[in-house]
Design a protein around this nucleic acid. Structure first.
Length: 414
DNA sequence: CGTCCACAGGAATGACGGGCGG
DNA sequence: CCGCCCGTCATTCCTGTGGACG
């Protein structure tokens, strides 16, 4: 095969790859479809609640609950953008601002974002939260609008920091003359109520909307709707679609996950140079997604967290049943010493372990050993070779990992 | 049946870098 | 360039606790 043939082959293959996807964008989770199946009730409810703003009245504050991928964000954006369009027709002064608190990160940045939205310039940082709040209030009052604030994933803001931001916001109307503010809080944690001040809770949940998880057949029809524009006709087997729906339903009824599975399965099929996505491809996609997630998380860990993972790996190798906080701290301190790094406190290590637990890298359980104290049993939840592969790329850790791997392959203790 | 281990995990505080206005 | 305010990481000090042992 000479050079031109190779290229010919490569280009042909690339061109043929269009056999699967008609439009991949449709499967991204930030894509807003114009049909939201199985959410008619929620759309109606939200619509009825915000409708008064069209006549210049304030809408009730709303709290929206539901797990990830149940359509909370999509429904909210859908309803509000239609509301805004309707308001333009009748020239009602309605504005809304969507903020994802998880991404925004801090109280300061939430207020800063709100200021930007109403055209009040604020620096990224440097001012006190109170100052930004005052500017926001002043700017808002002079602009005479009905302002709807959407706080998506508010739990990300409340759990670590308390509900002071919400408290300020719920009371803002009292001091506002010409403008009115409504708040839509979106949370994927039903227990969020417990964290809230009762005053905040009562004023924030004047209305509540709950998003139930989708079941498998609902997921199937959601996928079906998108598949029409995302894939070419016949490029997706029924079995593959059903499997995506079933896998996602088994987890949380998470539509986002179902769409991810579908997209990655399509990409797998593309790479295998076939014309039809099969169940086999979906299974592989499931593995890929998890694999990538873990690799990404491992790569981004701090040196100390990596050392913790390595310590657990080491202990699990020696004796699966005896990975306990105290021992891990011992091994961890040793490893730190070998690298010439000062070890952190045991208290600090304890929160690092908890973080790794919530990332799904470790699993922990508090156990009591009676007379011999109360501690935490810690296990590695991921494939060992994955850890070594990722950590071997770390210049500082490379040496330790090599050593560890030699032990693993020798199958003897050292 | 009380004790007491080996921690869990909350609260307060400090150290530090980034980014701003003045 | 200083002082101020953030957010993040880390330490210190602390109170709480399930259950085997005596």
């Amino acid at each position: 095969m000479d050079n031109t043939d190779i290229l010919e082959d490569v280009f042909e293959k690339f061109l043929n790859k269009t056999k699967i996807f008609r439009d991949r964008e449709v499967l991204r989770h930030d894509y807003l479809p114009d049909k939201l199946p199985h959410r008619e009730e929620q759309i109606r409810q939200l619509g009825e609640t915000v409708a008064p703003v069209l006549k210049g009245a304030r809408s009730s504050n709303i709290f929206i609950y539901g797990k990830t991928g149940t359509g909370k964000t999509a429904v909210t954006k859908y309803v509000l953008s239609h509301l805004e369009a309707k308001a333009k027709e009748s020239s009602a002064p309605v504005k809304f601002c969507y903020t994802n608190c998880q991404i925004t990160g801090s109280e300061y940045r939430v207020f800063a974002g709100l200021c930007q939205n109403i055209g009040v310039p604020v620096p990224f940082t440097g001012l006190s939260v109170g100052e930004v709040y005052d500017r926001f209030k002043a700017g808002l009052d002079s602009s005479r609008v009905i302002f709807i604030i959407v706080l998506d994933e508010v739990d990300a803001l409340i759990k670590p920091r308390g509900d002071s931001l919400l408290y300020e916001l719920t009371r803002i109307n009292e001091t506002l003359g010409k403008s009115k503010v409504s708040i839509i809080g979106i949370s994927n944690d039903l227990r969020l109520k417990e964290f809230l001040d009762p005053r905040v809770l009562s004023s924030l949940s004047e209305e509540e909307i709950v998003f139930r998880p989708y079941d498998a057949s609902e997921l199937r029809s959601i996928l079906f709707e998108r598949v029409k524009s995302a894939f070419f006709d016949g490029a997706l087997s029924d079995g593959a679609l059903c499997l995506c729906a079933a896998l996602a339903a088994a987890e949380h009824g998470d539509a986002r996950r179902a769409l991810d599975l579908l997209r990655v399965a399509g990409e797998v099929a593309e790479r295998k140079d076939t014309n039809v996505v099969t169940e086999e491809h979906v299974r592989e996609a499931e593995k890929n997604i998890e694999h990538n997630r873990v690799v990404e998380t491992l790569k981004n860990l701090t040196l100390h967290s990596k050392l913790v993972v390595l310590s657990v790996l080491k202990l699990n190798r020696i004796n699966v049943h005896r990975a306990i906080t105290g021992e891990i701290y011992e091994v961890y301190s040793e490893l730190s010493g070998e690298l010439g790094v000062a070890p952190l406190t045991q208290r600090r290590l304890s929160t690092l372990v908890n973080e790794l637990d919530s990332m799904g890298i470790l699993s922990t359980k508090v156990i009591s050993m009676g007379r011999y104290g109360r501690t935490k049993r810690i296990r590695l939840e991921i494939v060992r070779t994955l850890v070594s592969d990722v950590f071997a790329g770390d210049t500082r850790l490379g040496r330790l990992v090599d050593y560890e791997m030699k032990c693993l392959s020798n199958h003897s203790s050292c």
